[in-house]
Write a protein that binds this DNA or RNA. Structure first.
Ligand SMILES: [Mn+2]
Ligand SMILES: [Mn+2]
Ligand SMILES: [Zn+2]
Ligand SMILES: [Zn+2]
Lengths: 160, 160
DNA sequence: GCTTAAATTGAAATTCAATTTCAAGAGGGT
DNA sequence: ACCCTCTTGAAATTGAATTTCAATTTAAGC
């Protein structure tokens, strides 16, 4: 799904639901697609505020929920107490590796795991609608730094 | 890990941390182990209140966090906005199948998936500390009822 | 373009689980 | 029993998510 098809999807979703196309929604969608990453409402709101200080937090919140409803964004919960949204534009389904030290997020996709999930579900009579797989640990960089700190060979400032 | 070893673990955790063994903590641990399932703070508090109305919500909350710290309980987030805790007593690591209709939770363990997770992580240079795998869908029963409702052959009351 | 009904906006208020505060009470070493 | 420290429970606070509501904007119909 490209950025343009995300915009088209959103347009037609609004149309079919009797909702209206507004300047704010357009601006928020543009910024959301431009940002790319896994953004919380707060983060997107702050980014928008630089160029568009008139746009309210509540509108950003409501618009992100609309994005999720129409399928152009996916909500993520990475355990920091905030809901993040990622664009579905240009991305197939994927899962996440999350560094517990620096917060880095790496996306991956593993067909074998996906297949085994289906297999497990059917063994228990379940029909899967969606799933969540998150692997938490240390990224390569943070493993190196952790080792340095542990052995006292360096006094690098904290990575966060 | 048996219930008794959970109690022993908790005792020694308190001792090593300079914390105290109290009547409330004993009662909360007993009820937590007895309940068995995936309980939220609220649910455990309500269960306790029947026999021990003097125990406060804050104490239940703090005690569950202690259980998690010392490894006899695992926090779970199943997307209903509440943190649940499950006993680690008598259980190996496992993941969850969750029915989005009736809320049923089925536990499973799949060594192949676990191995593939490690493989994915090492491909990306990560060292996994923990992971979360949740499969959301309909349990067998809810698939059947859904079908009945859809075809109008029955008027069974909603399962929730 | 003008009118109008319905949807949207944004500031502020509210919700709700999680967490903290604090004064009174309990544990446990001596 | 004494004393210091930890714990408790009611109430207050926090913070993200969500709702409220009066003013504004959209877009359909004329
Ligand atoms: Mn992603
Ligand atoms: Mn479980
Ligand atoms: Zn890292
Ligand atoms: Zn079910």
């Amino acid at each position: 799904m490209t950025d343009q098809s995300a915009k088209d999807n959103f347009r037609s979703y609004l149309a079919t639901q009797g909702l209206k196309s507004t300047r704010q929604r357009d601006i928020i969608l543009d910024e959301f697609l431009r940002a790319g990453a896994h953004l919380s409402t707060e983060e997107l709101y702050l980014r928008l505020r630089e160029q568009h200080p008139h746009i309210g937090y509540a509108t950003v919140h409501r618009t992100l929920k609309l994005f999720a409803e129409c399928g152009i964004a996916e909500p993520c919960h990475f355990g920091d107490g905030q809901t993040r949204y990622e664009s579905s534009a240009g991305e197939e389904h994927h899962d996440h590796l999350i560094c517990t030290d620096c917060g880095a997020i790496v996306e991956f996709e593993n067909p074998q795991i996906e297949a085994l999930q289906e297999s497990v579900a059917s063994q228990h009579g379940f029909l899967i609608e969606r799933h969540r797989l998150e692997l938490y640990g240390r990224c390569q960089q943070c493993q190196v730094f952790k080792n340095v700190v542990d052995t006292g060979r360096n006094e690098r400032s904290s990575s966060r």
